[in-house]
Design a protein around this nucleic acid. Structure first.
Lengths: 328, 328
DNA sequence: ATGAAAGCGCTAACAG
DNA sequence: CTGTTAGCGCTTTCAT
């Protein structure tokens, strides 16, 4: 700006006014300032601007693990819908490991964004208490914070799993296995809890040999199901706790020629679930809505809402497509 | 820092030194400074830091349209691999429309990131010339810039499409339709060009009634193929220019009961392509590598490389799985 | 309608 | 080992 001011022969303040569309500059000088700005390829330095305007940076951060699922896609869509409405930029940064998650959160916080949305993977978020204390609003999505009081928007993992397994029980199944990744994730624990409570409600004592967690990736889930089917007392139905596991299970069933004999219900819908053979029955939830709610809550916090931390739970729904309706 | 300095009774510079792990502070004072810093929940303001150190912000930006494809996922993985190695943070911002793309690019540029990676969707990037002039390195990924000289890392769209259609021709096909979205995208134009050149090389004059572009989304592709199959002179094979079109075509073929009669080769591999029935033959390229190359080129530019803009083209490969080997 | 001065939080450059 | 001074590029405040 100093440069422009020098060339045009005005003060930097006048340049600032013109650049920011503030009133108080005669059209003639404004015109000359704009012209020189264009000539010089001037771009306002928002680092300096944001430093001075202690108020807001007009940017919120989203920290998650990039993935190729509908979850990623839709969540971002919901968030961007709301952010656009608030005139804010959404910046996403990856968290491939708990350490990276921590580093990323601190880095974004140091950049003084207006607020952060987090789809957490770490096991301890207490280090964020200091960020909260400096007034950085934080909203957790899909999974709650651990060792930290903060807002969270979750899906009804327990209820959804319960509904899935109830559905299988109604089909006459008693030996139902659960296959999943990341036993330690809150979502997984809740889904397994729902699985157990559905079995108990049906008077079936859960068989721990049918609970296969920590099977990371499609191949691990596939192997787990293959082993299960080859075992002494194979299950007649499967419940998978996420879409990667669902796909692995699908492959295993097909390889064993059991896809029309063993029922399968998966948590999380995914593109192509209806194209498989048989089409997959899943428990789904509205992820765009989850993103919207999270962003709305974040902007409420940014706007000064200081009510105690709250958790919102969104409903799930069962989508019967074929794989879950195979009788025992 | 001023706060901490006041309480401990040292200068801000000493606090700065300790906070940044610089030498020149006695362990005793360092300890006290760290203690007070923790107490106060101090977080360095990187806005101010980056403003002062004109040099680097240690952050690169990635501007693309969030999607649930392997493309997104893998590209980010490749970029993060390289960025991590350079100690840089990768920040992603969405570009849902050309206008948003423009706004996002300018916003990130104003924040003085070290460089930007762009998977472009707009039709005119000449406005970025001013950013380049201020020394902001720019690397385009998957699609080249338009009306701007900048580095680009592309896939061999023409060659890949050519290989796909050659493959179908070798299977005896002569009536081959092409279905795709976004006729205006560089990738699509190149792929269609490859389609035409393969046909001409086989002595087949392209039939314009078999060229169905601008079919946005799965449903549109599905409808296009359904109409085609019901028409007077249906094709014996299909070439689809992206994975959404491929999926739409798959659905249409299955609905028409033609999935074992009409051959299909798609551009872009996708999760589950091998699970469909018949498994899908696709033209794939290494997207992680594309991300890596793009990030490497960006860091070269950041490190001062000022050679003329260059374009790198990555090879594609045909993965025969079944759907493309159905004879005419 | 315009501008001068001060300062956002930090670090570079130079003293001591 | 420690501190002082100046200034990054911008906006706020207050004059004119």
């Amino acid at each position: 700006m100093k440069d422009i001011a020098g060339r045009v022969g005005v003060s930097v303040k006048s340049v600032s006014r013109v650049v920011n569309g503030e009133p108080g500059v005669s059209p003639a000088t404004a015109e000359r300032i704009l012209e020189v700005a264009r000539e010089l390829g001037f771009r306002r330095n928002d680092l300096a601007r944001n430093l001075r305007q202690q108020d807001r940076t007009g940017t919120i951060g989203l920290v998650l693990r990039h993935s190729s699922t509908r979850f990623h896609d839709r969540l971002v869509q919901g968030i961007e819908d709301v952010a656009e409405h608030h005139g804010a930029l959404v910046i996403t940064a990856g968290s491939r490991t708990p350490e990276r998650e921590r580093a990323t959160l601190l880095a974004l916080s140091s950049r003084r964004l207006d607020g952060l949305l987090v789809v957490p993977i770490g096991a301890d978020h207490s280090f964020l208490a200091a960020e909260q204390a400096t007034g950085m609003p934080l909203v957790f999505v899909d999974r709650p914070p651990r060792h930290l009081a903060a807002d969270a928007i979750l899906a009804d993992d327990h209820g959804g799993a319960r509904a899935a397994v109830d559905h299988l029980v109604r089909g006459g199944h008693r030996r139902i296995a659960v296959i999943g990744a990341g036993a330690d994730l809150h979502t997984v624990r809740e889904r397994v809890r729902g699985y157990r409570s559905a079995l108990r409600a049906a008077g079936v004592e859960p068989d721990e040999r049918l609970v296969l967690l920590d099977r990371e990736g499609r191949a691990a889930a596939e192997q787990a199901v293959t082993d299960l089917l080859a075992g002494a007392a194979p299950p007649t139905a499967l419940f998978t706790t996420n879409n990667v596991s669902t796909i692995g299970a699908t492959v295993a069933l097909r390889r064993a020629g059991a896809e029309r004999r063993v029922a399968l219900v998966g948590f999380d819908d995914f593109e192509l679930a209806d194209l498989l053979d048989p089409p997959l029955t899943v428990v789904a939830h509205d992820i765009v809505e989850m993103g919207r709610r999270a962003a709305e809550q974040l902007f409420r916090r940014i706007d000064g809402d200081d009510a105690p931390a709250r958790t919102d739970v969104l409903p799930t729904r069962l989508i019967p497509r074929g794989s879950g309706e195979i009788p025992a």
